[in-house]
Design a protein around this nucleic acid. Structure first.
Lengths: 227, 227
DNA sequence: ACAAAAGTGTTTTCATTACACCCATGG
DNA sequence: CCATGGGTGTAATGAAAACACTTTTGT
């Protein structure tokens, strides 16, 4: 609420956003991490993020961080959860509004900010030791994404403008961790009517060229049952 | 994150929880509101809530508020969303971690706290004018609950320890706003194997007595497709 | 010619939906 | 005896799942 109890104990908090930025590399879900330059946790990998500023909503802060750390603005972005364990940050009471973003690897421009010694992608199932409660945050984000792709088309935020049906299938298989039947997958996907075939094909590989597709609309679509 | 950028602009925030406490009265989804005693929005209805205190997680604050305002602890409680519009509270930068709770009407003990002039239930589709952004918060909570009951058994948090199959059906119909087929509903519900029939019946009404059931476990169950 | 992935239909299985009548009670 | 909700089964429909071979290219 807005401060209902006039006599409640008011307490000052710092508010941050932490960004779980997902992309797919080699059919594997990856997350962007930065190596911290300063204490606490100097030299340890962490999620990119930063303070919410005076005139920002948490979402605006997330968009700003996404631009600063990953060099892009358009993609899928969603508030994930607010982490507020009293002692999650050794410096004081810092509450973090975690967000996750899905971005195509092709558009990712990784930049280590001033306060980062390094920045790179890690497969979500092969993460280094992480600062703060960031392991928990990533685990929660992976769960959320895994659920979300079951009833929405958000995974498509991970794809470039032109892609093959096998590209989409590979992403689903990677996130679900199991193979799916190619014929059934294509049948269902095309029956949704959300894709338009391009006249181009992907050639140059020593195999039959694959038809390229694009989204009719990049609109987010929510269905009762997607796959 | 925990404050990654040492050089970012730190800003002090007040942190509150707002509670969307749902219950079902007369087959209708209701929400608990309190009438504010003090400015801002004195005399206006608002969600119960209050400040997150020094050693509390947001969830603990939510549990405390639930106990203070509704007189109960056990029920379904979930973090909903964090609302952080810079000007959502006229007194300053107040960020609210909204939660929603589902409680059985039979256990609700409504108490107007010191800072409330009144407290009562309102049907979610017939709300009074509301303080702050609480209209948005409730709308979001209603959407979330409507989605959640499609693939989980959380609605059962709204029921007393013993209930009839028609009781459950009425809640689904109320939240979904449409009638469902009695035979199909029962078939599906019983096939899930989550209920145990009690030996008692509900008598005293001028109609055939209805069998009473209880949950085998009050555990939260998540299914791909529930109804 | 061969390796590697692309592409393509039919059948079976299972879950959901539609649908109507008798039952037990209190008044 | 009657009004009220309680209680029950079967057939039709539609979606998902299972399943194997031919095509096209680069080397």
């Amino acid at each position: 609420m807005g401060t209902k109890r006039m006599n409640g104990k008011r307490q000052d908090f710092s508010l941050t956003v932490d960004m779980v930025i997902f992309t797919v590399v080699d059919d594997t879900l990856n997350v962007l991490l930065v190596k911290r330059k300063y204490e606490p946790f100097a030299g340890i990998w962490a999620l990119p993020g930063g303070f919410v500023e005076e005139d920002e909503t948490p979402r605006e802060a997330a968009e700003r961080e996404l631009l600063e750390e990953a060099g892009l603005s358009a993609s899928y972005l969603e508030q994930l959860y607010t982490f507020g364990e009293p002692r999650r940050d050794p410096r004081g009471r810092v509450v973090s509004v975690a967000h996750f973003a899905l971005v195509p690897a092709s558009q990712l421009k990784i930049r280590a900010g001033d306060d980062a010694a390094d920045a790179r992608l890690f497969p979500v199932h092969n993460l280094p030791k992480l600062a703060f409660d960031h392991k928990d945050i990533i685990a929660y984000a992976v769960t959320r994404v895994g659920n979300k792709i079951q009833y929405t088309n958000v995974v498509w935020s991970l794809l470039p403008p032109a892609f093959t049906l096998s590209d989409i299938q590979a992403i689903y298989e990677s996130i679900w961790g199991k193979k799916v039947d190619k014929r059934n997958f294509r049948k269902k996907l095309l029956s949704l009517g959300l894709l338009k075939p391009l006249s181009r094909e992907r050639t140059g590989l020593r195999q039959r060229p694959a038809k390229l597709y694009a989204f009719k609309t990049k609109q987010f679509v929510e269905l009762r049952r997607f796959f």
